[in-house]
């Protein structure tokens, strides 16, 4: 009799848990359907109203936020997926990517280091992602170490690996312009600092504006004297433009350097993102 009772009990428990699994799976599929059909806002609403706290839902919530570019929430939810879950590896990869987009690079690296797998493809992907993160950190030694660990015969990663290596070459060959030289050149000839920074058109325009104002000041000084109101007015305007142009040249060099770095970072992130999405078919 006891055995019969135990059997009935186990059977009932099985039914309850299998229904929970089915529910999680159907929710998973539905959210993926919403994301895949450009209904990300709806997916976010659904996830915000889902108070369940289990691995599937946390992953789903993380992926929904990740797809909607709510990266801090995405990283937070991905990190809640427990190590025993089959979604753990994928969660860590996406958590790392979310943190990398937020430039929390140490967190991104530690997310990847938590992945331990015997699967060669996963290890390849891990090394590739770590190489990308270290390139974002501009840590070229570690980048080389990780990128050399990526199996060169791995087809999906071949293209992106080559691209990361090319980006590294571009970063190393980028000659950082000196702020001091830009300022000094603009002091000598207005606009020359901007030409040095690579903005030739802007440099010529600055030269013409400052030159014209100085020409007007010189004419009035020559014809009307130093104390004439026109000399003082145009002289003041010329001085403002002249000093502004020196400052502008310094800022241009700084901004160009920042733009180069951020453009490269965007490309690195894009190259990390592609194999991740294709590997997990998301």
């Amino acid at each position: 009799m006891k055995r019969l009772l135990l059997f009935i009990f186990l059977f009932s428990s099985f039914i309850v848990f299998s229904q929970q699994d089915n529910s999680a799976k159907s929710e998973f599929d539905f959210v993926m359907y919403l994301i895949g059909n450009s209904m990300k806002e709806e997916a976010v609403v659904l996830m915000q109203n889902n108070s369940e706290d289990n691995d599937s839902i946390n992953f789903l919530r993380g992926f929904t936020y990740y797809s909607s570019k709510m990266l801090d929430l995405a990283a937070d939810n991905f990190s809640k997926v427990s190590q025993s879950s089959e979604l753990f590896t994928e969660s860590r990869f996406f958590s790392s990517l979310s943190n990398a987009h937020l430039f929390h690079l140490d967190k991104a690296e530690s997310d990847l280091n938590m992945i331990s797998s015997q699967d060669g493809e996963i290890n390849n992907l891990k090394n590739f992602s770590l190489a990308g993160i270290n390139l974002l950190k501009r840590n070229y030694n570690l980048f080389d170490t990780y990128i050399n660990s990526v199996d060169s015969n791995n087809y999906p990663l071949n293209v992106e690996t080559a691209r990361l290596l090319q980006l590294k070459t571009e970063l190393l060959s980028y000659k950082k312009k000196s702020l001091f030289v830009a300022g000094a050149l603009s002091t000598l000839v207005p606009g020359l600092g901007k030409v040095y920074a690579g903005n030739i058109g802007e440099g010529i325009s600055s030269f013409l504006i400052c030159g014209s104002l100085m020409g007007v000041t010189a004419e009035n000084w020559y014809k009307k004297g130093l104390t004439n109101w026109k000399t003082i007015l145009f002289g003041t305007i010329s001085a403002v433009f002249y000093i502004g142009n020196i400052y502008g040249s310094v800022v241009t060099v700084k901004v160009n350097c920042e733009n180069f770095n951020s453009r490269t970072d965007v490309q690195i992130l894009y190259n990390i993102h592609i194999p991740l999405r294709s590997s997990f078919r998301r």
């Binding site: 009799m1 009772l5 009935i8 009990f9 009932s12 428990s13 039914i15 309850v16 229904q19 529910s23």
Partner: peptide, 24 residues
Amino acid sequence: MFRFYIIFIFLCVVVSGVRSENLQ
């Protein structure tokens, strides 16, 4: 004791039934 088991199993079945209704 036997009665307790029966009640317990009955509750399990009821809960699973309710869940089943909610899920589908």
